[in-house]
Design a protein around this nucleic acid. Structure first.
Length: 371
DNA sequence: TAATCGTGGTC
DNA sequence: TGACCAAGATT
């Protein structure tokens, strides 16, 4: 058993399975038992929660989860929906590949898995968007299996408790961490999985962990000799590389009826599948006046539209995970007698009221709401 | 292996 | 204000 070594007078590293025993009493009292996915054993609802929570804060995902579940309460509802409907409900949540993958996964569950989430790790991971940790979480929650998860919370807790060194998010630690995760995971695993995530979210914080109230204080190598000492911070990642900056110009084409032209973005790449203002410029350098003249010609050809005041509105900033987009908006007017060119099959005019219900990137939604 | 893929909150 | 961070998966 883990405990205090009288000879050394300090805490010993955790033994296999020693976390769960200490975690459960704490979890009973302090866990986030109000979370909606804690009150269901429905494989669909549990899978959906896992997908939505990937790289996303619980508080952010909550509203999306409720709306999504209300509109698509079961596999078959999601499978029979259009991608547009799905992306509309995902709009603003980010990482839109999750929505596309989830849509596809729901179809596969209907066609290949008899309408039930697959019941083995290997088969579950065949679903797009379902990796090992997500698969394990669903199997443990929906089917009561003993499956270890390794999300950011579990990773951080295990890293500290076992006194590992370096960066807990480094891929090189994968094997070690999975082995530890499996060692610590009891059967059934559901409550333990939830508990370790709650500990990571409420106590074993990335910054300023609350070691003094941690139920693992006695076995955590990271908290040895706590009592006022500064807790070893988990290093946040490899050498920080500056986010490159890109410059973009969105074209705001509106007709006399107040309709706005939007085009669907290709499924690969940023904002895949979402409806967006046409991006007529996207480079690593600021557009020159020559650039802009060229773009104006392009606009005339593509849309038959005329530049409004010809003025570019001031640049705004949108931060992505791996670059910063500084973008401006170029208003243009589409005279009533002109039509958008037929070859623009990937785009069309939308009334503002309609556009509101589309899957839009966040900054585009803000622009349209400001009209 | 490392890059890609969003967004909003926090300090 | 810039950097970090959040229930990762995919290529």
């Amino acid at each position: 058993m883990a405990g205090t070594d009288p000879a050394l007078g300090r805490a010993m590293p955790a033994d296999s399975g020693s976390i769960a025993v200490r975690l459960f009493p704490w979890y009973t009292r302090n866990g986030r038992h109000h979370l909606p996915w804690r009150h269901t054993d429905d494989d669909y609802a549990l899978w959906l929660a896992e997908i939505m929570l990937q790289q996303t804060r619980v508080e952010t995902a909550l509203d999306y989860y409720r709306r999504f579940l209300e509109k698509f309460p079961a596999w078959k509802n999601l499978a029979s929906a259009s991608l547009d409907e799905v992306l509309a409900l995902w709009s603003g949540l980010g990482y839109y590949a999750r929505a596309r993958n989830a849509h596809m996964a729901s179809k596969l569950v209907i066609t290949d898995w008899n309408g039930l989430f697959p019941d083995t790790l290997e088969s579950a991971m065949l679903l797009p968007g379902v990796g090992r940790s997500t698969a394990a979480a669903v199997l443990a929650s929906a089917y009561g299996q003993s499956q270890a998860i390794l999300d950011a919370n579990a990773r951080r807790v295990l890293f500290r408790v076992h006194g590992l060194q370096g960066n807990p998010r480094a891929p090189a630690q994968e094997k070690t961490l999975w082995r530890l995760a499996e060692q610590e995971t009891p059967n059934p695993a559901h409550d333990y999985n939830q508990a370790i995530q709650d500990l990571g979210a409420l106590v074993c914080l990335s910054r300023r962990p609350k070691c003094t109230v941690c139920p693992l204080m006695g076995i955590c190598r990271g908290s040895q000799g706590t009592a006022g000492k500064i807790f070893p911070q988990v290093s946040s990642g490899p050498e920080k590389q500056r986010r490159p900056k890109r410059y973009g110009i969105f074209l705001l084409v509106m007709d006399g009826k107040g309709k706005v032209f939007l085009e669907r973005r290709p499924e690969q790449g940023v904002w895949g599948g979402l409806w967006c203002l046409p991006m007529i410029y996207e480079e690593a350098i600021l557009p020159t006046p020559e650039d802009l003249a060229e773009r104006a010609d392009l606009i005339a050809q593509r849309f038959g539209a005329v530049l409004g005041a010809g003025e570019i509105l001031s640049f705004r900033q949108h931060v992505f995970s791996h670059f910063i987009l500084e973008f401006a908006i170029l208003p243009a007017f589409l005279p009533a007698e002109l039509q958008v060119s037929d070859h623009l099959s990937h785009g069309r005019l939308w009334a503002l009221g309609e556009a509101r219900d589309l899957g839009l990137p966040s900054p585009i939604r803000r622009i349209l709401e400001g009209l």
